[in-house]
Design a protein around this nucleic acid. Sequence first.
DNA 1: ATGAAAGCGCTAACAA
DNA 2: TTGTTAGCGCTTTCAT
Lengths: 326, 326
Amino acid sequence: MKITMKLVAEKAGVSLSTVSRVLNTPENVDEEKVKVVRKWIKELNYQPNLAAQSLKKSNSFLIGVSIPNLTNPYFIEILDHLEKIATKNGFNIILHNSQGSPEIEFENINNFIRRNVDGVIVVANSAENIRYLKNRNIPHITLTNQFPETNSISTNHRYGGELVAKHFIEQGRVNLAYIGPENDEKYIGFQSELYEKGFGVDENMCIFTPNTPLSNFEIKNYIKKFLGTLSKYPDGFFTTNDTVAYELIKELEARDINIPKDTMVASFDNTILSQILKITSVNQPIQEIVEKGFEILLNQISEERFYHFGNFEILPSLVIRRSTIK
Amino acid sequence: MKITMKLVAEKAGVSLSTVSRVLNTPENVDEEKVKVVRKWIKELNYQPNLAAQSLKKSNSFLIGVSIPNLTNPYFIEILDHLEKIATKNGFNIILHNSQGSPEIEFENINNFIRRNVDGVIVVANSAENIRYLKNRNIPHITLTNQFPETNSISTNHRYGGELVAKHFIEQGRVNLAYIGPENDEKYIGFQSELYEKGFGVDENMCIFTPNTPLSNFEIKNYIKKFLGTLSKYPDGFFTTNDTVAYELIKELEARDINIPKDTMVASFDNTILSQILKITSVNQPIQEIVEKGFEILLNQISEERFYHFGNFEILPSLVIRRSTIK
DNA sequence: ATGAAAGCGCTAACAA
DNA sequence: TTGTTAGCGCTTTCAT
């Protein structure tokens, strides 16, 4: 048997609206009645039906979260912070995995729309999908990556790449390789810092991966194939994230390459993976990113529309560990 | 501007109910009209409002998921499988972190009720909360742990403990310690296997932790304090999960204790942590657990009530790695 | 095959 | 201060 407001009203001997008022504006209700109603609410452990509320008020206190995968610890940390801050603010999270696919991401977003979510947070795979959210006037932010004409919170990846290049140069390593998407800002920063100091990146020493997040299995295959083609190893590797670094290190160790003696490894994200494996990694202050992002989202939600704030950028730092200390 | 069924009906020049029929029982609608309506649905990218559907049909296609934390990779793997299987079956997941607290868990469950979820999946902290779900007649299952008179999917922890004890004995290590909750089945199995073979567990060599999931910080403190009190180290440690093993190993390494030479470490869950750190660990077949659990939940959901299936048990296996090989 | 109308549980405008 | 009522977007029964 369903415990509805109607039931509470009957038990308490008042009308529906009185119960509703006790819940929303108790100051407008006779004290005695407030007491009786509250007693019955407690007695029955009445929980208001949020679907009905949502229908009536056309906000749902739901936030759709779409992330590319749940194997990258970086996304998990984001999710963890998101859940906490959302709950604190009275929102619930609907979680979707996009598996790095723009099509699945589009389906996720449509599902969020069906659920009448108040806002969307997306670690996005596709600019198209972001435009869709914008055209539908749905409050949203993207995390981690930047997209034109929308709201994103991200660390300055280019600066992160520069930090890594500087550190490698300081360690006397200038014959360097990169593994990750070619058009990534972190690679551009890495490259330009090297050129500026009179060095360069040999692109034959790089693996340029597709722009979509890869499964661990795909990563491993790329690396295996690549290492097989090398006649000599670079002085150091810069990888696009910790998961890639993890797979790389496994492959290097399998080939009896010593880290950091024979070659060094630096990566991006500073997740628990790099902490465990003692990998030098670029730290993105996750809590700060999530808090700022949520604030911008709430601003849009309270105006009930998408609002263009632009990109909010946070400077990363480099955490130096065993993998790059000579 | 909201894109509702009414708008589609107007554009297509038919009534509301016809649009609804096109969506639900198109075989009962004139072919031509189906075409026109579908054209407009596509044109407007109409997405039905699930809150309204939910209100009307009193099912929500929502599943509430409450897990104790997002730092234990074991729970993440569960979550990952859950999201995929739920989406595949047309359900969405509302995610809550209970932070190991029965009170927060109770709040989470009440929130699920407010959301009118069709079912609840909980990696539970409290038998009381499970009873609450049962009394409310809400379809639910618990994962990982068993509770009386409800539905749980779990691996046989006792058997897992036995496997670890057997393995230690085979390695010639019988002076053993345990870190985890005292009343845990895996400890009971560990202990009884040792006794059976004529050995024992020195309880002074154990850390009995509270029954609630601990933060990494708390774990570290327990271990630090404990190791400080030891005059000599046990032959081997059995830890309640990989996270504890990780903290233990860090502390042992800081004290220059060699693993596996000076002491061995075996743990539980076989998450990515134990894979990375090469820790022997008891594997719980997560995919199997999640699939079986979801099946039992769907059974209840289709009957629209809680149904007592009992505990469904899966036998774990031991994955042997460097941390216990002499 | 189609439309009108009632109702899911709630809120809010209106009337009393 | 309180109750009555309309309506949020949808499904479904009942007429037609």
